[in-house]
């Protein structure tokens, strides 16, 4: 267990940096997590992060990468619903990395 500090407030994260209580999430947290991994968040990143939060809100799980890819394609268009696009945005793995920034748990079955 560790913490992440956002605007002077500490939030609990697990050993891999995932937020423990997803209700505590604030957008600034994503920026700080991204900066730690030398990633600058663009609108394209935020589109995926927001999508993940909506998905979690509806289904109570973080989607597996193939499910995410398919669902993104359906919602945002085929040019975005493919691994190449998503891995370019999130090189550590779209599901894993984007879920972390979105304050979600690691996807089920993701090692």
């Amino acid at each position: 267990m560790g913490t992440i500090t956002v605007d002077g407030k500490d939030y609990e994260v697990d050993e891999e940096g995932y937020l423990v209580n997803l209700n505590e999430w604030v957008p600034a947290m994503a920026e700080i997590m991204a900066k730690d991994e030398d990633c600058t968040l663009t609108d394209a990143h935020w589109e995926v992060i927001n999508f993940l939060r909506e998905y979690y809100d509806e289904y109570q799980i973080a989607p597996a990468v193939r499910v995410l890819t398919k669902a993104i394609g359906k919602k945002l268009g085929a040019d975005k619903g493919n691994s190449k696009y998503l891995y370019e945005l999130f090189p550590y793995g779209p599901a894993k990395q984007a879920c972390k920034y979105a304050g979600l748990p690691k996807p089920t079955g993701c090692v």
Partner: peptide, 14 residues
């Protein structure tokens, strides 16, 4: 406890 019933609706996407 966490209500995991919404997750059954995600199965179609899987």
């Amino acid at each position: 406890m966490k209500n995991f019933s919404p997750t059954y609706r995600a199965l179609e996407g899987y």
